[in-house]
Design a protein around this nucleic acid. Structure first.
Lengths: 308, 308
DNA sequence: ATTTGCAATGACTATTGCTCATGTTCTGGG
DNA sequence: CCCAGAACATGAGCAATAGTCATTGCAAAT
C-alpha cells in the first residue's frame, strides 16, 4: 500500500496532458509509447481509477487524473527551482551568457527564450554578441561569447555541441510562380531563378551548401537582411528563397507566398549550441539549451527535438 | 544531465534529517543503511556537492542538503494530500471510523492521532466505542466498530491485522522497594506482592498472560481504572504494577517510582489494529494506521514500528 | 473494405535499486 | 595507547522493474 508515485509518473502525466496523446508525449520524453502505456496502467491500477478518458482525441483527464496533473504542475517547477538553486550554490551566482548567432531567423525564438532565462538566472549577464560572424565558434575561443548557435556541428577540439532541434527548409515562391505547380523543387529548378538570401557566406546557406553547390548550380543572387523583405521580394516575383518552415508559417497561412519542399525528401536542417568543452557542465548553459528546446517545441511548428 | 531526483530521494533525505543518522533513518524506511548510503552518494555525486556534513552526530545538513530537505517538506505533504483526495474520489467522502480499544493506556497516543485524522478526513465520522470490551474484534463483526486496537493478533477468518508498534512492559516499584535492587524481575518476584492492574480479564494483562500464569504464580490483586491511580498506589507502597515503558516515562524522569525490566530479556508487547478483511483496503483506515505509527514513533519513547 | 493512427498487451531485456558482506573511520572506555 | 563498538562507505551480486520490441486491437477516415 506504499505510495507507488514517483516524479517520473508526474512528468509523464504532465507530458501526456501537454501532448494530448501517449505517442506524442512519449516522443517528448524520449521513451516509447509502450512505456507510457505501462506506466499509466500501473498508476490507474494503483489508484483504482482511470486517469484519462481514452477513445477521445485529445486524451481527456478524469477528475483523478486532473488531481495528479495539477500536483505535477505545482511540484515540477518547485523541483526545477530547487535544483537551480543548488547549481548556484555550486557554481556561484555570477557568470555571463553571451550568445553568438549566425542565423538571422533565430531571433524569432531567441527573444522569448532569453526572457525565460533572465527570469530563472537573474544574476547571469545576458547578451547577444552583436553583428553576424562567419565563424561564431571562434568567438568562444576568444572569450567574446559563451554560447554559439550553429547549424553544422563541425567536430572541433575543445568544443561541445548540444543539440537544439531539426526542421525542414522550404522553398518560397510567388503564389502564381510556374514552379509552384511542382510537388517539390530540385536543384535544377533554381538554375534560372534569382535566389534571395541573407547577406552571409554561401557555407551558411543550407540550400546552397547542400543542394545547389553539389549540383554545380549557381543562380543569380539578391540579398537582404530582413526576413520580411525576403518574403516581400518573393511575393512580388523578384525571385525565390529558402527559409526554415517554422519561420514562414505565419505567411503561408495567409497565402502570402507558396512553399514547396526542396528535393523529394525535403531539405533537413538542424541547429546546435556550441560551447567550450570546459564549460559544458555549467548549469546555466545547460539550462539555456533546455529553455530553448522547450520554447521552440511549443512555439515553432514542424520542428523535432534532436539528440537525447 | 537529466534530473536524477526522485521522490524516493526526498523521502530518504527527510528521514535522515528526522532520524539524525543513516542507520536510524534506514530502519524507519525499512531499508538498509547501505541503501541510504548509496542513494546519498549518488545524489551528492549528481549535484557535485555534499548534502550532509558527515563525521558529526547528529548528521548536519549543508546548505544544498537543506534546500532539498526543504523541498521535501513542501512536496511530500502535497503528495499525501493529493493521494488522499484521489482516495476520496474513489471511495466517496463518507464513512465512519469507530475505534474499539482494549488497552487503557492507549488513550495517551490515541487522542493526538485522532486529532490529526480529523484534520485529514473531516468527512469521516470519528468515534471511540465507549467502554472496554472483552473481545473488541467481535464489535467489528457486529458493525459496532470499524477498527479495534488489540495486543495479540489472533488469526481469525475475515479479520486483517495491521501492525502498529512494539514496546517493552516494565515493572513499577516504589523507589525504596527491596526488589528495586535487582537488575530485572522474574515471575517469582511477584509471588508475595500485590499486583495493581486495570480491571480487565487476565488475558488482556501481558504480565499475567505471558509471565505469571505460565509460572503458576497468582499474586494478590488490586484494580483501578486510572493510570495515575496505579502510579500513586505503587509510589505509596501498596503494590507493584506492570505498564508499557512509554506510558510511564514521564513519571520515571521525575523519580516518582522505579522501573525494572520483567525477565532478563524484557517483556515484549505489541499493538495491532484489527479491521474487517473486506474493508482492509479502505484508504482512511489505512491512513489512520499510518497516522498512529507516525504519532507514536515521534512521541513515545522506546517503541519500535513493526511489520513492513 | 482497407488503410491509418493510436493505445493495449505480453514477452523479453536492461537497468538499477537493494541487500549482503566487508572495509574504513571515528569515538569513548579501560 | 589500544581496543571495542558504532557509525558510514564500498563493491559484488541479485532481484525487482522500467523500458523496448513486436504484435494485437480498436476506431475513424478514405
Amino acid at each position: 500500500m506504499q505510495s507507488l508515485l514517483e516524479l517520473r509518473h508526474l512528468k509523464t502525466l504532465a507530458a501526456i496532458r501537454d501532448a494530448g496523446s501517449l505517442t506524442r508525449a512519449a516522443e517528448r520524453l524520449f521513451l516509447t509509447q509502450s512505456a507510457l502505456s505501462h506506466q499509466l496502467r500501473q498508476l490507474e491500477e494503483h489508484y483504482g481509477l482511470p486517469l484519462f478518458a481514452r477513445k477521445t482525441a485529445p486524451l481527456k483527464l478524469t477528475p483523478a487524473g486532473d488531481k495528479l496533473v495539477q500536483l505535477a504542475d505545482h511540484l515540477l517547477p518547485m523541483i526545477a527551482n530547487a535544483e537551480r538553486d543548488i547549481a548556484k550554490l555550486r557554481e556561484g551566482e555570477a557568470g555571463s551568457l553571451r550568445i553568438a548567432v549566425e542565423c538571422h531567423t533565430c531571433f524569432d525564438w531567441l527573444m522569448p527564450a532569453m526572457d525565460t532565462f533572465r527570469e530563472r538566472w537573474p544574476e547571469v549577464e545576458l547578451d547577444i554578441v552583436s553583428g553576424f560572424h562567419a565563424d561564431p565558434v571562434q568567438l568562444l575561443f576568444e572569450d567574446r561569447a559563451d554560447l554559439a548557435i550553429v547549424s553544422v556541428p563541425e567536430a572541433e577540439a575543445g568544443i561541445n555541441h548540444l543539440p537544439l532541434f531539426a526542421y525542414d527548409m522550404v522553398a518560397l515562391l510567388a503564389r502564381d510562380h510556374p514552379l509552384a505547380a511542382k510537388p517539390h523543387l530540385d536543384a535544377a529548378d533554381f538554375a534560372d531563378e534569382t535566389l534571395i538570401t541573407y547577406p552571409v557566406p554561401d557555407d551558411m546557406l543550407d540550400l546552397v551548401r547542400q543542394v545547389l553547390k553539389p549540383a554545380g548550380i549557381n543562380p543569380k543572387r539578391r540579398t537582404t537582411e530582413l526576413t520580411v523583405a525576403i518574403l516581400q521580394l518573393v511575393a512580388s516575383r523578384r525571385g525565390v528563397a529558402a527559409l526554415p518552415g517554422w519561420s514562414v508559417q505565419h505567411y503561408l497561412e495567409r497565402d502570402y507566398v507558396a512553399a514547396r519542399p526542396i528535393t523529394p525528401g525535403g531539405l533537413r536542417a538542424e541547429l546546435n549550441a556550441a560551447v567550450l568543452q570546459d564549460r559544458a557542465g555549467t548549469a546555466y548553459l545547460q539550462d539555456f539549451v533546455a529553455i530553448v528546446r522547450e520554447v521552440c517545441v511549443s512555439e515553432l511548428p514542424g520542428i523535432q527535438l534532436t539528440g537525447a
